[in-house]
Design a protein around this nucleic acid. Sequence first.
DNA 1: AGAATAGTGTCTCTGAGACATTATGAA
DNA 2: TTCATAATGTCTCAGAGACACTATTCT
Lengths: 243, 243
Amino acid sequence: MTRSQAKFLKSSDKFQYETPSVAVDVVIYTVFNGVLHVLTITREEHPFQGMWSLVGGYVDIHKDSDIVATARRKLEEKTGVKTPYLEQLMTVGDNQRDPRGWTISTVYFALLPFKDIKFKNDSQTSKIEWTPIINGKVKKKLAFDHAKILSLAIERLRGKVLYTSLPFYLLEVEFTLREAQDVYEIILGRKIDPKSFRRRFLVPEILQESGGSKISGKRPAKLYRLTPNQHTHFFVRTLEGSI
Amino acid sequence: MTRSQAKFLKSSDKFQYETPSVAVDVVIYTVFNGVLHVLTITREEHPFQGMWSLVGGYVDIHKDSDIVATARRKLEEKTGVKTPYLEQLMTVGDNQRDPRGWTISTVYFALLPFKDIKFKNDSQTSKIEWTPIINGKVKKKLAFDHAKILSLAIERLRGKVLYTSLPFYLLEVEFTLREAQDVYEIILGRKIDPKSFRRRFLVPEILQESGGSKISGKRPAKLYRLTPNQHTHFFVRTLEGSI
DNA sequence: AGAATAGTGTCTCTGAGACATTATGAA
DNA sequence: TTCATAATGTCTCAGAGACACTATTCT
């Protein structure tokens, strides 16, 4: 070992002492009953014991090889879903958000089709619940800065819906165009013209007919699925509603 | 974990070993000589001693009240600039990127007008240098996963240029439309039609004439500035070049 | 047949791209 | 006057919005 290497090891021990706590939170979205929902759980421990919060927890450097592994682990623990759409939203970190001191939290959001979820309600002490998002807010009071995080997460989801095909991750593999349009309308909070909606996804062949159809009212609707090997589509024009 | 348990663990050696190190890196962009540049410095310490890297460092929980304060502090230490355009890009964190173990780094990018910068080249042991970005890459070999971070940062900058007015943060307060267009063309790596360019910013009154003009060739060009109280503009149509 | 939902025809409007043209001031 | 650079005129084209219209199946 060189002299400078020795020096650096010594000083890195010192740094460890001063390190913030490192956590991950996940805003888990799904849509059912015509409403966007986010998964919330009650806190088992102080601080904010018993209060509702987003799904999250500390990075476990032995279990998690990287930060998204923490997000996946937390998500799977609560929902049983292993391969969700998961996107990093942002990182918050300061000395105010947690009364215990300096903490940093990287926030992800996940999009899940409602059907896929088998709740793991195994804990005795904590409740887990889909909370409806009405007018961009949740009625529950949330722990830490989770209300602010959620508000930014909703803003981001709304923003992305205007120029991407993200909402299809909230649907099952096959869906009717009306079901897809419903999800768009729920997130945007406004109606979309059906002709525009169909044109947007069918002309560039983002969707393809699956062959089947679904009867839920009068005339049966064709079933569609995402064209294979298409990832999230980014449109060159946004829908109205962008400020 | 009770509050007192947490408090105890935090002060114990064992808990310190279980927490990742927390750092911030800043991709500092500027444009001069017709080329996009990123600020790089040589590392004074192991690991990767002497190697080029992005500007960054550990969060200091005593100096920094939040994570963006760390970014501002690092930026100001190297460039003297106090109020840059600064945007959080993403957070990387795993047990591989630093040989010392689990580390997490939140990456910001900054846009600086070249003129504003007074280098603080005070250190004897480290060099600091603008590194040109050619074809989305830098020739220097970078420490840690900084090459990958930079590559994502460039992708993000390119993407944003297609639908925002971000590049104006790379210009001084007053500029000609040709200077603005140059910056756009440099980042995108392609020519833009001057008529389209002017229409994009003048019709929605994102820019306004400052009254002055600048002679750099033959016919003097009018000087423009951002319309007051306008923040970054998001266009409803992207420029070509989006995949 | 009537009702309700699925799906289409087609017009307008905005703004990007392309490219020809005009305007201005220095040498 | 020449000429390089600044700035404009104007056509095409893609795609969103609006809205009237047709198609299909159930009761």
